[in-house]
Amino acid sequence: MVRIPLGDYVEIFIDWLTDNFAGFFEGIKNALEATINGFEWVFSTIPFILMVLIFAAIAWKVAGRQTGIFTGLGLWLIGSMELWNATMQTFALVSTATAIALIIGIPLGIWMSRSNTLDKILRPVLDFMQTMPAFVYLIPAVYFFDLGPVPGAVATVIFAMPPVVRLTSLGIRQVPKEVIEASRSFGSTSSQLLYKVQIPLAMPTILAGLNQTILLSLSMVVISAMIGSGGLGDVVLKGITQMRIGLGFEGGLAVVILAMVLDRITQNLGQKRA
């Protein structure tokens, strides 16, 4: 049987990219680093208690009293496990990755909803991005961006972006035909149609995509810690490598709490609007 050296080709391609686009990757790296550091600075400068209260208040407002109380208690528990700084590091990474996924994903989803050709092309690409074992992204990410939080963020964006693209496209395609016709019949331009009708009506679905993206980002936390992105992933990784079951559990629990808090908040954002 003929062995197709697909792996070799990928290596050659990656080498070519690093040789020729070093400046480009350097730029991305600096921008990402600045963003992550910025988020981290904000999150860690705000005092622990204030941050817990802010989260609890937001959760209370959008999702009700129970969620508010749960959020307060959960975050307080994280603090009491002395994992607050690590959690804020992780939160900064997740925020950066989610922001980038939205900035790229929403326009892409809008475009995809308007073009059946692009839809056909993007579908398998999105499948690929989402189902390829996430570890595989780590290698080229390290190639281009060295170790640290930046390659972690890049790998996370690739893995976590598909839902927001897909659901933006789906949400816009699901806007009833008659409503579109009504808007056009009153003389709206395509951008008025998009901003006044399609996006508002697709918003609950787009927010469901945001929710999925955040949760997928969190599922990358431990994996990206393997290339030095730090945060809670690092805590869990330490627990694994040093066989410290307690530490691993605490780190894992903190990830779960953060995930639940973010999930409840974003989920209810969508339902409020619907």
């Binding site: 009833p176 008659e178 016709e181 808007s183 019949s185 009153f186 003389g187 006044k196 609007r273």
Partner: peptide, 29 residues
């Protein structure tokens, strides 16, 4: 677009209102 804005308006079978807007904002669309 100008003709659609100024000269004709349409009413639809299934109303085709914007569900995220209040009645007055729908009428003002």
């Amino acid at each position: 677009i100008e003709i659609r804005r100024k000269k004709m308006a349409m009413v639809f079978q299934n109303f085709a209102l914007l569900p995220h807007r209040t009645i007055i904002d729908n009428v003002a669309f």
